[in-house]
């Protein structure tokens, strides 16, 4: 019994540590980007505003935003098709559909201004820890992207 408890607490500690590490990593990466933030705003306005809003809303320990527009039938440099990976305590005890709704709601303005497709991976830190932490590519386009 005591052994089981200690193994659980070890797991919790580990996930807390990992979460913390990711937070630091994220904080660092956003600092390093801050010098060129002005540039990113111009070049990637959609990605920049998505990142800002999702970071504020979910305080994620992992936040990845992948522009998959190049896979679709849209002009080069478009910001229409995205995949986001969000790992956050905010998803604890929240059903998957509701997690997606939360993310969609945060990005409501973006959906109204050109965001066309959004693939969402929304996990709690513990789920993320248990997963492969690799996110597959979205399915190939079937030609209807611009429609």
């Amino acid at each position: 019994m005591a052994k089981a408890v200690s193994s659980i607490s070890a797991k919790l500690l580990r996930s807390a540590f990992t979460a913390n590490r990711f937070t630091t990593a994220y904080a660092q990466s956003s600092t390093s980007q801050s010098s060129s933030a002005g540039m990113a705003d111009i070049v990637k306005p959609m990605e920049t505003s998505m990142k800002k809003k999702l970071a504020e809303a979910f305080k994620p320990s992992v936040l990845q935003i992948v522009n998959e527009s190049y896979m679709h039938n849209v002009p080069k440099g478009s910001e229409t098709h995205f995949k986001v990976v969000i790992v956050s305590d905010a998803f604890e005890g929240v059903q998957l559909v509701q997690r997606h709704r939360k993310v969609n709601n945060v990005l409501e303005e973006e959906f109204g201004s050109g965001l066309h497709a959004l693939s969402i991976v929304a996990k709690t830190p513990i789920q993320w820890e248990k997963s492969t932490q690799e996110v597959g590519q979205s399915p190939p386009c079937r030609g209807g992207a611009g429609l």
């Binding site: 497709a117 979205s138 399915p139 386009c141 079937r142 429609l147």
Partner: peptide, 15 residues
Amino acid sequence: MKGTPDQPRCGFSNA
């Protein structure tokens, strides 16, 4: 969906 089950016009619909 976008398209029909036999001819989906979008990768997500096809999936």
